[in-house]
Structure formats: C-alpha cells, structure tokens
Design a protein around this nucleic acid. Structure first.
Lengths: 340, 340
DNA sequence: CTGAAAGCGCTTACAG
DNA sequence: CTGAAAGCGCTTACAG
C-alpha cells in the first residue's frame, strides 16, 4: 500500500453510488430522510473506496467541529505532562485534540506566535483552544483557556498558586539556616514569574532578611538564560549560600554551573527550583523544588475549555491550583551555619 | 480582550483596503505584481484588523501547506519523547507540526483510528504524516512515515533494533543465573512485539534453555493487560525466577503485582522491561530495561518525512536504530542459584 | 497592476 | 426522499 493516488472525495463516492454529493453528505452525517436502499448503496461505495471526509473541508463549512486545539511554542517535559492531563480530561468527551506547534524553537519568529496560531486555527478548525504560556494577552473568536497567562490577563486561565509555592521553598531554605539566598527570575511578563519573585521577597521580608538586589538575576525561564546569571552570582566575592531559580530548567542549569565551578551541592551550595519536571528527580543530587502538577493544570484547562465550548460553565473562569514543596538532596544547611 | 466577535476574513481586509480579495491574497503571499501603494494600503488594513489567514481555507485551496502531521492514539511518556525528537528535527525547517489525537483512550472506537485520522488530515491539511504505533498497515495520498509499524508493513518506517535489544536483556538474565524466565508479549501484530519475542526465544535457544510455553503471557503493550498475566505466572507452583516484559509499562505492572504478592524484587524475582521510559528510572527498584531512544525514533522519522515531502530522499526508507541495555536494580541472581 | 470567476471538498437551506 | 445551487475562506489562472 503506502502512498497511493489522489484522496477519495465525496464526489467520487457520489459518482460510484450514482447519487448526489448532498445525499452522500446526509448518509455520512446520519441525517434523516434518506431511503434505506440509498443508504446501503452509499455505504458500500464508501467502504469500497475507503472514503473518509476531509477534516479541512468539513470544518470550513461547519461551525462546530468537535475538535479542540492546543497551541504551544516549544515541546518540553512540562508540555508533555500538560498534554497527558488534557487527554485525560478529554477522554471519551467526543472532542478530538489538535496540537499546533511551530518549528521555530527559541527563534525570533516566536514573538506573538500564540496569537498567530490561535487565529489560524480558531477561524474554523477548532471549537476552542488552550494556549500554553503565551507571550502576551490573547484574543479569539472562540473560547480560549490559557495555562500560565501573562500578568494582568483577563482571559479564562489556569495557574498554580505560584506565590504560596515560592514562599514555601524560600521558607525551607531559611529554616535550613540560609540568609544569603540568590534568585533567578523568569520572564517577567508572566504572572507566574511575577508571583514567584513576589514569594521570594515576601518570605525574606517575613524572616527579616533584607532583599539584596545584587542576588537577583533576570532570566526568562529558558534554561540557557540561567547559565551566565548563575556564573555571575557564584563568582561574587560574597556568593549566596543558596540559589532559588524560578523554574527547574534554570535550576538544573545552576546545578551544572556549580559543578563546573567545583562547588559541591548541597555541601557548598543549596539549589532549589520550581515546577517539578521529571528531570529534577533524576538529577544528581535530586532537585528540591515546588510541584505544580502540570498534569492537573492540563486537566483543569481542558475541563474548563470543554465546558466553555458547550456553553455550560458556571464557575470561576480563573482557576488557581495548590502546589507542594518537594524536598530532595539539593538543599541542606549552609556550611558555616549549622541548621537550627 | 478574550473572546471577540467573528473572525476577520480576507474579505473584511479587502473591503477595508478598497481592493479585491485576489489582491489581498497576493499581498499576504508576497506575490509579484502589486503596486507599492496598494501593498501599503493592504498591509495597514491587515494590521488594523488583526487579520491572519485561515489555515483551513488556505490548505483547502493549496496543495502545499508546509504543515506536517503526527497521528497518535494515546498520549503517554514515550509519545512525549518521540515528540521532542520530532520537534528537534523540524526546528527551523519551515514546517509546522500538527498533532492529532482522538479522545477515546483505549476505546473500541480505536481500531483503525490511524487510518481514519491520516485520511482526514492528509486530504489537504498536511503535506505528510508520521503515524505512531498503528494497528495496521496505512495508506495515504501524501508521504507517511510509521514509527513502530506492523509486521510485514512496506511503508517507510523507523524502528528500534528490537531483536538485538531483546536478546541482550535475556542474555543478561541468563548470565545472572536465571533459567526459568517468563515473558509477557506485546500486541502481536506489531513488528516490535514479534521481534522482542523472537529475541527472547533465540537467546534461550542459544543458551540451550528450552522455551516453556507456560511461561509466555500474551499482553498487548497496554500496562493493564499485564496484571492478570503476571498473576498467572507468579501464582504457579513453579514460578519463573525472572520476568521479561515486552514493554516498560507492562514491566512496571509486573513490579506492582510482585509487591502485592509479597515478593521482593530483585530478591525473589527479577523483572526487566523494554523502552526505557522515564518512569522506569524512578521505579523502586529501578527497572532494568532496553533503551530504544524514543527521542531518536522521533527525530529520524521527522527527518525522513521531511525529505520525502521535499522529494529529496535518497537512502533507505526503512530505518532501524540501535538499542542499549540499561541495567538497574530490578535484576539480580536468583535466590537459589548464585550467579556465575 | 488589478479584478471577476472558478473551484478546493464539504453542508445546508430550498425546491421539487 | 433527492438534487441543484450557494457558500465557507481562500488561491490562481484568465482577462483586461
């Protein structure tokens, strides 16, 4: 088999069955008002030719497609977790899922990707879309749910309770005896990045530790952005005894840099992240982090979108999910100051 | 912002700019033969209205879309790995990727899903498709690459060297001193399942150990299918001292069952799998398995598809990738027979 | 340089 | 119960 000629169209079926395309369409869609014998003829032609309706043509003509979309920039571990949750929520829901990704990883073309893809899909293909970590506010003619929206967004969304999560991990470091705690921030337009930094500041303030701006590096969640920042922090004459990075990807990069510099973790330096991606458990030592269950973010987003599309949503349109601290081997009391 | 009215069409832009849709189309697609002033007008209208061409309408009209498709039934850890490889291969290639999944996990609707989805997409939406672990042979009017084809398939495909991989893991168990080695097979129509079983048989034969059919359970790669089979094997009066499952998902299920039965692994029972999914490293004890780099399978499949679509493929159309044995804590010498 | 018209594969009133 | 025709949003010869 493999590659065969032109695709079989409804027209081909109509000719083969000796009826009009309108009739074929009725049979395919199970509409009433077709005689049993005609149905049989058409069915047999469909079978014989291996006809399958074109998703594109159907969705251009119809308003409802029963396909939901998910738009994401890159494809990383956390995206995979999100997807698993989405698939679970959509299981046997009657909705299929289309995921659209552009191939330009980390490229300059990327800015505004989410809006472009969203518009191109939601014109006709999908009944609604989930957008993962967009660069800006999004708008669409069909329902949208954003996972990790930008700060100030008014679109329906699902986020982790980033503030509480960040507070808990910084409190953990403080309890171990750390006082000089570095921070590597994420892309500041995102509400998640803002809340994680706010949590860092609040936890320090609460403990009476002044915030030292020299200990804050400005990353963008991209692991590579954390390399130079970690170097800058650790090369200081008065380096921090612990570094909290706003994402696991960046924290793992800090781990690498520390190794390069000959620092042992957690002996010389404690490191903590945020997200709990699978790689964090596998790191050596395991990374202390905040679990935000990307699976649940995906699940809740899909559930919300499904309800919005069906027009049966009653509850709040901005969902915030709890986080939990995951303590692993990368954090310990600082060398000079034994823990309390 | 959020949800706004009807989507902006090319017609809207044409009216706003005072030109025909043909002209707007030319500007959008950068065709020659439009005056500079008209281009400026149209551009400004596009900007003002926030127009983005409809993927569906465009692909219905055009033969080439620069979108590749990936069709998969469910969405699991190995799918995520495959996707990462695919995305890497497509990075900056000019091709976008659409992933299509149906929501009916493990449902009866599933049989033949891959052909249905493939046909619906490849009619017009995509220039070519990757199909992951199909149920049967596939055909399409555009290029297809199958990851893990059925046995006897003639479609371009990418597979791990399952035979060699299975031999290596069984040899590992034999070297530890095991002689009664159980096997839980995968869905037999798949070439991967067949080769893994063949490897099991050959390694035993090579070692002069007769194959005991009572020690072979027939699963289907779905983890749940392995539960009853593991029970049956371990409840025997003469249970095997080791079980090799044809996939990690099934092997992890065997681990669970062993725990339920009060058997310690690897003390009372050795367990090995195939695939090396992330969960296997996290299991307690870590699962001995065969790494088949799903990432590379995805990467090679995308690379092959890209070349096929561009019509510039020269090499072989059936790619087989090497595997490697990963020894972790779940395998050890059997209790009664110390290792050699 | 620009527009009117046909058509991609479907669905849906509208006639009959 | 069935078909001819219009139209979903685009692109592309074909005229002018």
């Amino acid at each position: 088999m493999a590659e065969v000629g032109a695709p079989v169209t409804m027209n081909d079926v109509a000719r083969a069955a000796g009826v009009s395309t309108a009739t074929v369409s009725r049979v395919v869609n199970g509409r009433y008002g077709v005689s049993a014998s005609t149905i049989a003829q058409v069915r047999s032609a469909i079978e014989r030719l291996g006809y399958e309706s074109s998703l594109v043509a159907t969705s251009l003509r119809r308003s409802r497609t029963n396909v939901l979309g998910l738009v994401t920039h890159s494809f990383q571990s956390y995206t995979a977790e999100v997807l698993k949750g989405v698939m679970q929520a959509l299981s046997r829901s009657g909705f299929d899922l289309i995921i659209y990704t552009n191939s330009d990883l980390y490229g300059t073309y990327s800015e505004g990707w989410e809006q472009r893809h969203l518009t191109r899909l939601s014109g006709t293909l999908t009944d609604g879309c989930i957008v993962v970590t967009p660069w800006g506010e999004v708008r669409s003619s069909t329902p949208v749910v954003v996972i990790d929206p930008v700060r100030g967004s008014t679109v329906p969304s699902v986020t982790a309770d980033n503030l509480t999560g960040a507070i808990s991990v910084v409190e953990h470091l403080l309890a171990l005896g750390h006082r000089r705690i570095g921070f590597i921030a994420g892309r500041s337009s995102l509400e998640a990045a803002w809340s994680r930094e706010e949590g860092y500041r609040r936890a320090l303030a609460e403990a009476g530790v002044p915030v030292d701006l020299a200990l804050i590096g400005r990353g963008d969640f991209n692991p590579d952005s954390a390399g130079p920042l970690a170097h800058a922090l650790l090369d200081r004459p008065d380096p921090p005894t612990a570094v909290f990075a706003a994402s696991d990807g960046m924290a793992l990069k800090v781990l690498e840099v520390a190794k390069d510099l000959g620092l042992s973790v957690p002996g010389d330096l404690s490191v903590a992240g945020f997200d709990n991606i699978p790689e964090s458990a596998l790191a050596e030592p395991g990374l202390t982090t905040v679990d935000q269950s990307m699976y649940r973010l995906g699940y809740e987003a899909a559930h919300l979108l499904k309800s919005l599309v069906s027009g049966e949503w009653e509850g709040r349109r901005r969902i915030r999910l709890p986080t939990s601290l995951v303590i692993r081997g990368s954090t310990a009391p600082p060398k000079s100051t034994p823990g309390p």
